[in-house]
Design a protein around this nucleic acid. Structure first.
Length: 691
DNA sequence: GAGCACTGC
């Protein structure tokens, strides 16, 4: 059955270690079998008698496919003893003893059951990927181990370098290594960094094609521009695929044909292509990062980490020995590359996560003292608190409000959940639900349309942004347009053909429907009006509805407000270090007869691409903005963070005169969080001093 | 007047 998997030989040792320790870190490389076997071993040893074994995965597909596999190996029906739970789909039952789930679902479960006491074992799989959710779970689980004493076992599985660090986080818990089942991969470095990565990877690909025996070539690049730049048929007897053409990539190649697959980091984790023997690694990745002082995201091309480089190389050794051509020098790898990828928690806006943690209402957890494996910057936490206060989720002392409590239960970013709450008061909840659902899927909605634009660019006139038959938001902006699009789809009885005709991705629109249904269910018990999403027939009624909706959006997006500059159409952001930003050209927001945009707008996102842009904007009125400006004037960040500035200084002084208080160690997990928090504070204070 | 990598509740 699964006896060929390397991990099976380590069963005795792993089980003994788990028996003796509350937390164990297991380092297992690709192909070790950890995802499918650990749960079964624990099941055999009786750990499912006192509770369920939970195994988290960062991705939905992984949760489903691993669960299916385990059910098969145990010879049981999926959904009975072995099941899975992902968003929109819970295939578990009263019989379920082994449950695979996404890390996001487990986090949501904490809301109704903070101690997760239905579980006897929690396995956080793929922890090295350091997804935002896994990082939060790591902190929560560390606490749970203390609270639930010896009744809970925790396994953290990780690949490659950072196992020691996770062990340190869990007070030097044991680390077990399980070998993977990879074939050796020979690493070749370039002598120097190339001037053009596209050109250099082409040349390398050519060399491989001419000199090396059969085997497909996987090329890691940063984005779409490289797909377009690489000519499709640059050598005979070969095929070049962008990874997006999944159907062709996954069907077997024609005989005597070498495939060249150009991919982004999607091929690092999510997709595996059989037959790859050669990897070409540009050494770069496109990464989204958040700047808490400006509230702006940027998409930057950055050097990958050593972990990522090794992950990429590993893709060459899955079926037989392979080769990896790195388009950078070994010195660069050794000296410039970071050991591990900067975790998501240090690259994202934390408003949602902070609200979530506050809503758990754990007696011993203060958000600024929360024990993260890698703490986010103080600035980032303060930014989150400020934003949450502006949208009434926390009061001026940082305590969660009743509005905030309800917001946290919605699977939405805080601006949108606040909009729903306000819309419920305004009598436009149904419309707000639609907008929130549309924005949740926004990036996947218009993709088809954009591709159309690309391909038609050379020979026909460029198409105007909204194709003629899509609504235009009545001039109020993109939120209203998204609402109108969904309403039209509804009027067309959710016809798939209608989506296609209007350049909307069917899968994206189906996702919107799912999200909307889920949100409606969650809001049902507090909803004050009908949620059926139908359009009001009468023009006047519709306009009044839009006004109420815009008003609700203004309350929800009080943390994302911009003011137009006098005499031109640039905007200044409010509430952050002021930035000059533009309405994104794809926006449907209309100008007045003088060509001017409204004086105030809210935006869904600030993103710096070629220039700083506001994406998805909505016009709001001055009278709605005034109270927000007043609130901003009164904002006191020290008070919000529980008087952090003062109290931290005081606590620091106290510590000089008395020994640090050690909490009692339970279940072999002594507490080292104080020193880690101390270090974060020191960094914070040092920065403050410099200013 | 531009076009964005990948996930997830």
């Amino acid at each position: 059955m699964a006896n060929h998997l390397p991990i099976v030989q380590f069963e005795e040792k792993i089980m003994k270690t788990v028996e003796d320790n509350a937390v164990v870190v297991i380092i297992g490389e690709t192909g070790s079998g950890k995802s499918t076997q650990l749960s079964q071993m624990l099941h055999r040893r009786g750990y499912t008698k006192s509770g369920i074994i939970a195994v988290t995965q960062p991705r939905r597909v992984a949760a489903v496919s691993v669960a299916r596999r385990v059910a098969q190996e145990l010879g049981v029906t999926l959904g009975e003893e072995v099941g899975y739970a992902i968003r929109f789909e819970d295939r578990t039952s009263d019989l379920t003893r082994i449950k695979y789930l996404t890390d996001g679902v487990l986090l949501r479960e904490c809301l109704s059951n903070p101690e997760l006491d239905q579980y006897s074992v929690i396995i956080l799989d793929e922890a090295h990927e350091r997804s935002l959710n896994t990082d939060i779970l790591l902190g929560l689980v560390k606490r749970l181990v203390k609270v639930r004493a010896s009744k809970l076992k925790v396994l953290i599985t990780s690949a490659t370098l950072d196992g020691e660090k996770v062990s340190e986080f869990f007070s030097d818990c044991p680390v077990l290594n399980v070998p993977g089942k990879l074939y050796p991969v020979e690493i070749m470095y370039s002598e120097e960094s190339p001037k053009s990565y596209i050109e250099s990877s082409l040349r390398t690909a050519m060399d491989i094609h001419v000199r090396e025996p059969e085997g497909d070539v996987l090329i890691f690049m940063t984005g779409q521009e490289s797909y377009l730049a690489i000519p499709y048929t640059f050598v005979v007897n070969s095929h070049v695929f962008p990874m997006t053409l999944q159907v062709r990539v996954f069907s077997p190649p024609p005989p005597n044909c070498r495939r060249f697959i150009v991919a982004t980091n999607i091929a690092e984790t999510s997709l595996t292509v059989d037959g790859v023997v050669y990897v070409i690694d540009s050494g770069y990745v496109k990464q989204r990062q958040y700047n808490p002082s400006t509230g702006m995201y940027s998409l930057d091309i950055v050097q990958i980490s050593k972990v990522q480089a090794n992950q990429r190389a590993g893709r060459a050794g899955r079926t037989r020995p392979g080769k990896c051509y790195r388009l950078y020098s070994s010195e660069a790898y050794q000296e410039e590359f970071l050991d591990v990828t900067v975790p998501e928690i240090q690259r994202s806006s934390l408003a949602g996560s902070v609200l979530y943690l506050k809503s758990l209402d754990l007696p011993d957890i203060d958000i600024l003292k929360f024990d993260f494996l890698d703490p986010p910057s103080f600035e980032s936490l303060e930014d989150a608190l400020k934003q949450l206060h502006l949208i009434d989720a926390i009061d001026d002392t940082g305590l969660i409000t009743s509005v905030g409590k309800t917001m946290a239960e919605l699977p939405l970013e805080p601006s949108l959940s606040r909009t729903l709450m306000e819309a419920n008061e305004n009598g436009c909840l149904s419309q707000a639900l639609t907008v929130a659902a549309m924005l949740s899927a926004e990036t996947t909605l218009l993709a088809a349309q954009r591709l159309c634009q690309y391909s038609g660019k050379s020979n026909e006139k460029k198409r105007k942004h909204p194709p003629p038959d899509l609504p235009d938001g009545s001039g109020w902006g993109d939120h209203i347009q998204l609402l109108q699009i969904f309403e039209q789809w509804d009027q067309n009885e959710f016809d798939i053909g209608w989506c296609k005709n209007n350049g909307l991705q069917v899968r994206g629109m189906m996702f919107v429907k799912d999200v909307r249904r889920q949100l409606s269910q969650l809001m049902q018990k507090i909803a004050k009006g009908s949620l059926n999403g139908r359009t009001n027939e009468r023009y006047k009624e519709r306009q009044r509805g839009y006004k109420n909706l815009r008003k609700a959006l203004c309350v929800g997006y009080a943390n994302k407000l911009a003011e137009r500059m006098v005499q031109h159409n640039g905007f200044r952001t409010i509430g952050f270090k002021p930035q000059l930003v533009q309405v994104h050209p794809s926006s449907t927001l209309k100008t007045d007869e003088d060509g001017m945009f409204p004086n105030y707008i809210v935006y869904h996102e600030l993103i710096a691409t070629s220039r700083p842009f506001m994406r998805n904007v909505c016009a709001v009125e001055m009278e709605w903005v005034s109270p927000i400006l007043k609130k901003l004037e009164k904002l006191n960040i020290d008070k919000l963070s529980g008087g952090s500035g003062h109290s931290i200084r005081e606590e620091n002084e106290k510590k000089v005169s008395s020994l640090p208080k050690k909490e009692e160690a339970v279940a072999g997990v002594p507490d080292d969080s104080e020193s880690r928090i101390q270090a974060a504070r020191d960094r914070f204070l040092a920065r403050k001093g410099k200013k």
